[in-house]
Design a protein around this nucleic acid. Structure first.
Lengths: 206, 206, 206, 206
DNA sequence: GATGAATGAGCCTTCATTCAT
DNA sequence: TATGAATGAAGGCTCATTCAT
């Protein structure tokens, strides 16, 4: 019984955050109404205010939550013991696959934290920097291990991050020209080609 | 007199669109009020409705306008007769410089068209595809001329576009770690390093 | 035309304040809704916010306005050149008559400024003190002229003010036992009896 | 056990009514929330509804309770066997002292029953009339005993009642000009002066 | 054309009340 | 009996839009 009610409470919070993610993603922050979120979550409008003190706090919490999960996914992938190129490949394929599976979340990430203010922006930026730092470190370590050239790690992090975002966005925007064959291996094939570009560059070796 | 009033009319339209860009960029679409836009433009609130039938149409017009200008800038740069690497370099340096100079516009571009619907989204996507197509064509042509390897042009377009976006965003977010030395040549140096990564890749030649 | 529109604006403000007085008096501050006030005034809900920035400011303005008019009435009456007793008599009869005529306003005055905070309370208190000071001065002057005994003027002011309030309240509460015969002279007769009590006291002369 | 739980129940009821008095007095009827009252009483929000079926009933009960206690105090004082003037003096001094000691209650009384409707208003009025009747009777009896002149008893009741209210209000409003020396005997001195005014009147004997 | 006073639909938020535990 | 999580009606306020001037 105890564990039941405890479960129920967590469940309600989770349902609200999930509904908020869905609703904000569908209608945008300002466009979404608390009533929509409540209906989507299957709770009363007032119930949301038992967990979040304002619409803004709800958005911030959900946004940070998604951002953190994205960061954790990236960090986890590039922390493996595989060869740098392999890790990079997994990074691309997982993110692209994830964008497909969790469209709602990526909508959110790409939208970013526009219009949010002050303290929140700092926290969001902090997580974004985590991501950048992880990627930069990944590049540096690759160079130390002799698997990468000695390029500017921070710039390379921008290139990787930007590529991931662009691919995910294409996914969301349904860029069927780029990503049409959705069989089992399309993400891996895509990742292979992208990583080839990133690793070998676009210029022919002389 | 005719040409005068016509000029006056164009001028007023231009001031309104400029004010809208500034205001939407500062406060977001929903956060901005028509009163704000009117004040910023130095016209009466009702005047805006002589040129645009709704707030949404105003946003769409301004957004498409900015997108087009961005597209045109990119197209113009990569249409020159220079070597591919040189054009790519100019692409990066101009975009980064532009992000610095025209922050309002880039805010807008990165924010995208959230919450906008249907027909408008198609038009925005269409322009975004113009950009992608231009970049892909640029890569293809480079390959034909032997200046680029025979990589997947569309994927390389994503890499370039994503890199540009990531750099521009860092600019806006004031990522002072990446872009601190703001002397005259910082953009060129940055572009050089970025293009080196993109052209030669991150892996050492064997 | 100019004077017309100017009149219209003043008229709208006046209608809103009047409607607010009526509505607040009928339903209480918290009980009244802005929609009620708007309907009573025959304007749109938003229009009120062109003249007052919040419900609270509306209440404060109306309350201070009524308070000031009450103060001015009292000051005017006791500033005449008549004998002290005559002025006191007019004070009572006018206030009682006013309570009858302007019930809404007296409701307001008696309710006072409960729940209002800070700066406003100070301004209301300041006007209430004006009234007390005027009454005290009236008593002092009466004493100087030999028409009154040398009693504590401030205490006597409390007695007069309290008596006026109690009579006005009885009026409002429909104390038909006290104030039933509402012919032309009832107020004068009442005032005569009251002033007799206040002037000669309740104890028999020894 | 029975008497214990019965005691506990009475105790809880008392605590709730006390908390309501404090809370309503502090925040006003509409401003106070049931949660505030519950917290102040140290009980759960739902518990209040075991004793009162609505917020309004709670207010009415508490208000009538306070009114009755005030009435009883007045009746008790003027029912003694002392000389009329002595009783009047005790009336003033006790009320003023009481206003100091039980500010919360007087706040309530002075605030009155604004916004309350129908049946309740009748009951409150009924108690207020009790007070008026008691005072009028007191004056009549004084006249019968030859200690008072034969004035209109109901009007004199208004004068006394109004004076008491005005003094109590000054107390609450912190009218330090009137009531500053708060040593042991200030209330008695004040009462002496007030009663002198009421008994002998403000006009010099001729 | 240009304006801004006026409007009212719509939304965030509060809080009295209920009811499962 | 006692509780407080859950609810949803209701209200203050905003702001896109209109229209008389």
């Amino acid at each position: 019984m105890d564990s039941n009610s405890s479960y129920a409470k967590d469940d309600k919070l989770r349902r609200i955050m999930d509904a908020a993610l869905t609703t904000f993603s569908r209608s945008g922050y300002q466009g979404a109404t608390m009533q929509e979120v409540a209906s989507e979550a299957g709770v009363g409008k007032g119930t949301i205010y038992l967990y979040f003190c304002s619409k803004e706090e709800l958005l911030e919490t959900v946004l940070l939550d998604v951002l953190k999960r994205y960061r954790d996914q990236i960090v986890q992938i590039i922390s493996s013991e595989d060869a740098s190129r392999t890790r990079m490949r997994r990074l691309v394929s997982e993110v692209v696959r994830g964008a497909d599976r969790r469209r709602r979340q990526f909508r959110f990430l790409l939208q970013g934290s526009w219009g949010m203010g002050g303290e929140f922006k700092q926290r969001a930026l902090s997580i974004k920097k985590d991501i950048m730092n992880s990627l930069a470190e990944f590049v540096s370590e690759g160079a130390e291990m002799g698997e990468f050239r000695d390029v500017d790690a921070r710039l390379m992090a921008h290139i990787i991050s930007g590529t991931l975002d662009s691919l995910a966005a294409a996914q969301l925007w349904n860029d069927e020209q780029t990503l049409e064959g959705q069989d089992d291996s399309w993400a891996d094939d895509l990742a292979g080609a992208v990583v080839d570009c990133l690793c070998s560059g676009v210029e022919p070796e002389q």
